[in-house]
Design a protein around this nucleic acid. Structure first.
Lengths: 189, 189
DNA sequence: AAAATCATTTGCCATTTGACAAAAAGCGAT
DNA sequence: ATCGCTTTTTGTCAAATGGCAAATGATTTT
């Protein structure tokens, strides 16, 4: 779980005592391929940090198609913020797409860290706004690019994902059909 | 400037003395159509809140095309967060697309509010993460939809924008050519 | 190994969108 | 009203992508 500590130390400093406290509150959740970390219609109860494996956030659009909103791979936060913070029903599924280990904090423990560690809120704020900005910066430019460019950028952003997940997930992330993506890949190589 | 106070009171409480302090630090910036609030290559120095008018955030992609990342209309924050918080060069232009009044806080004043008002940071955190989540939620679904649907959703999200800005800005926001958007509009009505 | 199941590729054709150019419409200044 | 400028619409054709079904390939189960 060192990875998580390294991750948050990028955003602020913590002493050893504080680090120990954080680690004491964390649990490890092991998910098998296709299991859900959280589900649409439920209120997100945990903050997670992916230690191993890949997770995706997905939903069903009004045509019933399954859309992958984004992937979350190793050493990234996984939390349905809107649902977790406002205690409202989530609108998306968070699903392990490989066997996955996730470090998790319950809502209660997460709040206790906020009350116990001076500066914790500031760190969390930075972590979260950084993650959200990254999502915006990754998604926005894709809208004005063609499918091939979107795929090439996907490969840059998630170099460790493409060989570990079904093509259909990548296709729905990129907003193209599976057949189109298959042809695009043929044309690239 | 009541609008700004109403806006932030959605995210936390403030007493009258605190509200007066906030208002005392705010200035009004009047921009004419096509003037810039901030520019790529410079470090963002202000947090703004649009009182009247419409602003857009835009950049040039590697083909030299001008892309509109998003619009910001009345009663919304306008700040290049990445640049403002980390004091790095901005990658985007923020441009008034109608005559616009913006309530602005200098970086110095903004920090002073943080140091003076208990709970200010918590409010700002909520405001910012809400705004970022909104951007993600608006942008993500568009990638998997066709141009007509994207346009219809644009009309829902920005009901007050379409008649006040050039078609080309909307087209670059939606990731279609101006001609296509023109045809799409013809087919809808 | 064979069968069953699931994932990916391919073929065919329809539809959407892009590229480019020209025409039409809107708008401000005179 | 007219001119000059910008914005929007339209025409034509080409390229990209989608929809559907079949074929191929990969993986798991028996």
């Amino acid at each position: 779980m060192k990875e998580f500590i390294e991750y948050i130390l990028q955003f602020g400093s913590l002493n050893q005592q504080q680090i120990d406290l954080i680690l004491k509150k964390a649990d490890i959740l092991e998910l098998q391929k296709d299991e859900y970390f959280s589900e649409a219609g439920k209120v997100a109860q945990q903050v997670g940090f992916v230690l191993n494996g890949i997770v995706r956030v997905c939903y069903y659009n009004n045509k019933g198609e399954e859309i992958t909103k984004y992937f979350i791979d190793e050493n990234n936060l996984v939390v349905d913020l809107e649902s977790f913070e406002n205690e409202i029903q989530s609108t998306a599924y968070v699903q392990a797409i490989t066997d996955t280990s996730i470090m998790v904090f319950s809502k209660k423990d997460w709040k206790e860290l906020s009350n116990t560690i001076v500066g914790w809120d500031a760190i969390v704020h930075k972590v979260i706004s950084r993650a959200l900005m990254q999502k915006v910066e990754r998604r926005s430019p894709q809208i004005s690019e063609d499918a091939t460019t979107r795929y090439l950028k996907f490969l840059e952003i998630y170099p460790n994902v493409v060989n570990r997940v079904p093509l259909s997930y990548v296709a729905s992330y990129l907003g193209v059909t599976q057949s189109s993506l298959s042809r695009i890949r043929k044309n690239i190589s």
